[in-house]
């Protein structure tokens, strides 16, 4: 009977961790593959964090563009973070999560700019916010990253 109880406890605590480990890995690898493939595409919109574009003639049209992603950590990462918080130090698992979310947000912003016919995006800003939820009580649950900037759409020379 005792063994059964211990077995149940182990299953319920280790189960989500194992699922998180496997599915989190697979999803992360797939996401990185897609990010890298899209980043390598040629003829992409150029993005700058500079505040002002260099003056050009004829003056381009400007439009605000945004891109965002809400990403959730998996159970394994949360478990590792819990252990890490005992001794402190770098949290690789969260670093890759934020990196993925930022790059994805930038790619989505670029896609929006490209759809408008823009060639450049200036004054790009990145914003990160923790989304409150049940998971947020135990630290970082889901994270939203927003990228925004001003797309410059070239106008026909007269």
């Amino acid at each position: 009977m005792d063994a059964l109880v211990i077995g149940m406890v182990l299953l319920f605590s280790a189960g989500p961790i194992a699922i998180g480990l496997v599915s989190g890995r697979i999803l992360e690898r797939r996401h990185y593959a897609s990010i890298i493939a899209r980043e390598r595409q040629r003829g992409q919109v150029l993005i700058f964090s500079q505040r002002l574009p260099p003056p050009t003639l004829p003056a381009p049209e400007t439009r605000l563009v945004t891109g965002s992603m809400v990403v959730s950590i998996d159970y394994f990462k949360r478990f590792v973070a819990g252990l890490r918080s005992l001794i402190g130090g770098r949290l690789n698992t969260h670093e890759s999560l934020l990196d993925r979310a930022r790059r994805e947000a930038l790619l989505r912003m670029r896609e929006q700019a490209a759809a408008l016919g823009a060639t450049q995006v200036f004054n790009v800003k990145l914003e990160t916010a923790a989304i409150a939820g049940r998971a947020a009580q135990q630290g970082v649950g889901s994270i939203e990253v927003l990228a925004y900037g001003t797309a410059l759409i070239p106008t026909d020379p007269r």
């Binding site: 989500p16 699922i19 992603m69």
Partner: peptide, 23 residues
């Protein structure tokens, strides 16, 4: 749906859309 995703990890598409619409 999001609390399930908290086990598996990955993008919360519903929230991405919700926040975009709100913005």
């Amino acid at each position: 749906a999001a609390s399930f995703k908290n086990v598996f990890g990955g993008e919360l598409k519903g929230y991405t859309e919700l926040l975009n619409d709100s913005r």
